[in-house]
Design a binder for these strands. Structure first.
Lengths: 224, 224
DNA sequence: AGAAGAGATGAACACCAGTTCAGAGTCTTT
DNA sequence: AAAGACTCTGAACTGGTGTTCATCTCTTCT
């Protein structure tokens, strides 16, 4: 007898897989990576614990996919924002601002994806996630250098440093407990973006202008 | 009967405690925080596993003390370097360079202390460690501002961002696998220090001068 | 409708490092 | 020297979470 998956089943399987991933993402956004355990995620996705293993070989795989997923969305958002900017410097400012806004708006998730301790080994996917984002920033820095807006420099190191600055200032443990009102949040984003632009060599006066332009069009409540 | 600890015993107890902490530190420097487990540390310190619990109530306490210990040394080194500098800007440059050199020279340890996933909860001690170091950097930034060398700004956020940049660029997962030769290491330190100084608003030309001055006197092989 | 393949279930299992504690060893006092 | 107090030992215990698998349910094909 030849059993063949009907279209309906294929769809249901895909939906389940997505439901599990979505459940993991929501769980992470609410309680951080520590809360992403098989049992709770399964409950949230309306499946049994064992079912999770029919879709993901192990917890490490589940979390790796989660990280890749979030990372993909983030990268797309950065590209969108940067591509919409009028010039290389604005593009860089827009990229940086986008990252800043996203991480402050979704700190638990960002922290979980980026740095929060996990039992299983997810260093690989975290690394490639960082590489993707850093690569994008790096190419924007590079474009600005080629346009003569920035001094020549080690772009890889600069990109890494920029992201590190954003993360530590906005989502790390030292970041203010809560950016309660929109204004404080906006201030923090502006300050850090300004810092980042100056770091790569944008002149102070020019940087201020770029920051204002970059922050204005950004939906502050953006979801990662 | 009144039992009284003789001086010799007090000394031995203290020595043992130090031996355990030292063993933990060495273990962390070699294998990262993941390697800091009670059994291996006990073996290294030449005591039984149970003995560790006569000196530290739990693994969390042991690691917290380890973090505090390293942090204390680091803070002292930063102060020493900064205080020896001729002016506020040089002091800031010296402080940043010191951190940079220390973290690249001891990456496994730095990563373990700063950000590596741990089973137990050490967020508190990591937080205060960061606060101490960031506070020192912050006050140096503040001094430079008061001296009119830097524009006014949110110093707390700036200090956090600076440290984040150093960490991500030099010890994070994206940092080059190894700064094999002294020259590469020196280059990385210089580049990142330059980036950091520009971030807080030091003019590019001036920043370059400060970096060269700051890097020169630093023992590159410094131990944290 | 019924047989057979595929998917889902969830209780039971396995693993593993932190922690405990009864007994052995060491030091202090009389 | 002997008793009492403190310290050390390390094998056994514990707790919690990822993972498995015998069983059940659902789907496909004749």
């Amino acid at each position: 007898m030849v059993y063949r998956r009907t279209q309906q089943v294929v769809k249901r399987l895909a939906a389940r897989r997505n439901a599990i991933l979505a459940a993991a993402r929501e769980t992470c956004a609410e309680g951080g990576m520590a809360a992403v355990q098989i049992a709770p995620v399964a409950v949230r996705a309306n499946v049994a614990a064992g079912t999770v293993y029919r879709y993901f070989p192990s917890k490490a795989d589940l979390i790796s996919e989660l990280i890749a997923d979030v990372s993909r969305d983030e990268l797309a958002a950065i590209r969108r924002a940067a591509d919409a900017a009028p010039g290389p410097s604005s593009a860089l400012a827009a990229a940086v601002t986008t990252v800043a806004v996203h991480v402050v708006s979704n700190r638990k998730l960002a922290w979980g994806i980026l740095a929060e301790p996990v039992e299983v080994d997810v260093t690989e996917s975290r690394l490639s996630s960082r590489r993707e984002i850093a690569g994008e920033i790096e190419s924007r820095i590079d474009a600005a250098i080629r346009a003569g807006h920035l001094p020549a420099q080690d772009t890889a190191l600069a990109a890494a440093a920029l992201l590190g600055a954003l993360h530590e200032a906005l989502v790390g443990p030292m970041a203010p407990d809560s950016f309660d009102d929109q204004m404080k949040l906006r201030d923090a984003v502006q300050t850090v973006t300004l810092l980042a632009l100056r770091a790569v060599g944008v002149m102070d006066a020019r940087a201020r202008g770029l920051v204002v332009q970059a922050v204005l069009p950004t939906k502050m409540a953006a979801t990662v």
